[in-house]
């Protein structure tokens, strides 16, 4: 049986490197279904990733794929998009890659509201390097670099990106496959910077250290902790502790998109420059 997503999959490169129970494959498949539904073309679609478990997704995707350097996927994607505004450019990144080492590029891309789509796989841990803490790890979480429990508070990446200027912000989980697919699809279609946080289970590196080394149970837990934006609106901060607020959290289709503004400005400059004779006559 062949799956429809195989059209955009390098099946000859499988099996993938992800551990059993990892949620990265679920998010990658959701992205591929969204790409198929939107009719994205290989010639004009580029997936850019950084370094880390989630960023390895670009190895298996049969589109234009750039596996760049740690933390810099958004910066590379910015260059691609500016050079080829007609391309659809998607960034696949993780919580370490996108929110720690690459945090500065993330907020600046939000501020510019450049038409990129960033899907950030959030598993709260550095999996590839063996289980170190990430900036999205909850207080009390255990990692090789927080062996006695983490003391720092985590980022709420959706609040962060909205505040920084992203015009589309959403959160889904690997436990809600169809919703995630819809969110990614809407994000790609959105004209402006779209940020989608995908909460994924990491049973091997996170789970084993935090008493949840069971993939189905971790997915179940994501589902039970999830709450819609509408329901969350009525709850206090205390009541929301430990909950995962999912769905489209912010959407503004009227915010000026960077490339459109840039191109209009460049056209005006070019017109002015091509009429120096008229200028001299003045």
């Amino acid at each position: 049986m062949s799956l429809e997503i195989e059209e955009f999959l390098h099946t000859e490169r499988l099996p993938h490197i992800w551990c059993p129970g990892c949620g990265n494959g679920i998010v990658t498949a959701a992205f591929l279904r969204a790409a198929l539904d939107l009719g994205l073309k290989r010639e004009s679609t580029v997936v850019v990733s950084g370094i880390g478990c989630s960023s390895r997704a670009s190895n298996y995707i049969d589109l234009g794929t750039v596996h760049s350097i740690h933390g810099r996927a958004i910066a590379v994607a910015t260059g691609i998009k500016m050079a080829r505004p007609n391309f659809t450019v998607i960034v696949l990144t993780g919580d370490g890659d996108g929110a720690a080492i690459g945090g500065n590029h993330l907020i600046h891309a939000c501020r510019r509201n450049i038409d990129l789509t960033c899907v950030l796989f959030n598993n709260q841990i550095y999996g590839m390097t063996g289980g170190q803490l990430s900036p999205t790890m909850e207080v009390g979480g255990r990692a090789t670099t927080a062996p006695h429990g983490h003391v720092e508070p985590p980022f709420d990446l959706c609040r962060l990106t909205e505040a920084a200027g992203a015009s589309f912000v959403a959160r889904g989980t690997a436990g809600h496959i169809r919703q995630l697919e819809k969110l990614i699809k809407k994000g790609i279609a959105h004209p402006g910077f779209a940020f989608i946080e995908a909460v994924v289970p990491c049973p091997t590196e996170y789970g084993r250290r935090n008493g949840t080394a069971n993939a189905p149970r971790m997915l179940d837990d994501e589902r039970t902790r999830s709450i819609s934006k509408a329901k969350a609106a009525g709850l206090s901060r205390q009541e929301l502790a430990g909950k995962i607020v999912t769905g489209i959290l912010h959407e503004d289709t009227t915010a000026p998109e960077f490339l459109q503004a840039y191109t209009a400005d460049a056209r005006a400059q070019a017109e002015e420059a091509s009429a120096p004779a008229a200028k001299e006559q003045k």
């Binding site: 850019v48 810099r72 590379v76 994607a77 260059g79 691609i80 500016m82 590029h105």
Partner: peptide, 14 residues
């Protein structure tokens, strides 16, 4: 500067 060279690399890749 990191973002600068990375954006250049992105453009050069096109």
């Amino acid at each position: 500067e990191i973002a600068s060279i990375c954006a250049c690399i992105g453009a050069a890749l096109t």
